[in-house]
């Protein structure tokens, strides 16, 4: 099954996963989809005090085609939902999604005619960060959890089309 059939060594599969995932998890290119007040806290994660660069995820790509992680930061309303879906669809595999703050996660306290009640109604989400807005430490915690999640994946999990 899988890579063993290609390489002939049963022991190679884990090592390849590890090598690839090690590279992936320490070099996230993120696409910041920033729509509301949470953006301020997101910027502070980037800046020198919290310094997201220590985790290898400091490099924002404003083209979804070059990004690995989609950070949805802030309130997403029904008007914006098709844009978010489109950005997600334009990203290449492998790709992950982080929902930043309660608005993105569940609509937050905006339970009204305009607001999407959680971005998982539109796109699949890997990590949710609670808080309004989340503290930078929570964001770094989420990033580490995402790295752990990536480390558990197999390179064969994802479909390449």
């Amino acid at each position: 099954m899988g890579l063993e059939t290609v390489f002939g060594h049963s022991y190679l599969t884990t090592r390849l996963d590890e090598a690839v995932n090690w590279g992936r998890k320490y070099s996230f290119f993120q696409y910041p989809f920033v729509t509301a007040c949470c953006g301020m806290e997101f910027m502070s994660v980037w800046a020198s005090t919290y310094d997201i660069a220590r985790f290898g995820a400091e490099y924002p790509r404003f083209s979804p085609r070059q990004a690995d992680v989609l950070f949805v930061v802030g309130t997403v309303n029904e008007k914006l939902a098709p844009v978010l879906k489109r950005v997600y669809d334009q990203m290449c595999e492998p790709k992950w999604v982080v929902s930043f703050g309660v608005c993105a996660t569940s609509g937050g306290f905006y339970d009204n005619y305009a607001t999407v009640q959680g971005i998982d109604k539109i796109i699949p989400v890997d990590i949710y960060i609670p808080g309004c807005p989340p503290r930078p430490e929570a964001v770094l915690d989420a990033l580490v959890k995402l790295q752990e999640k990536v480390a558990r994946e197999s390179v064969l999990d994802r479909k390449y089309k």
């Binding site: 029904e78 939902a81 305009a114």
Partner: peptide, 29 residues
């Protein structure tokens, strides 16, 4: 000016249903 084309009704009227949603794209699940 705020809501999108195709939105029906006027959301700040008191008789607009509180839980009514008008998504532009189909929601998952």
């Amino acid at each position: 000016i705020l809501m999108y084309d195709g939105f029906e009704g006027y959301p700040l009227r008191k008789d607009y249903p509180l839980k009514k949603r008008q998504p532009r794209i189909a929601h998952r699940d």
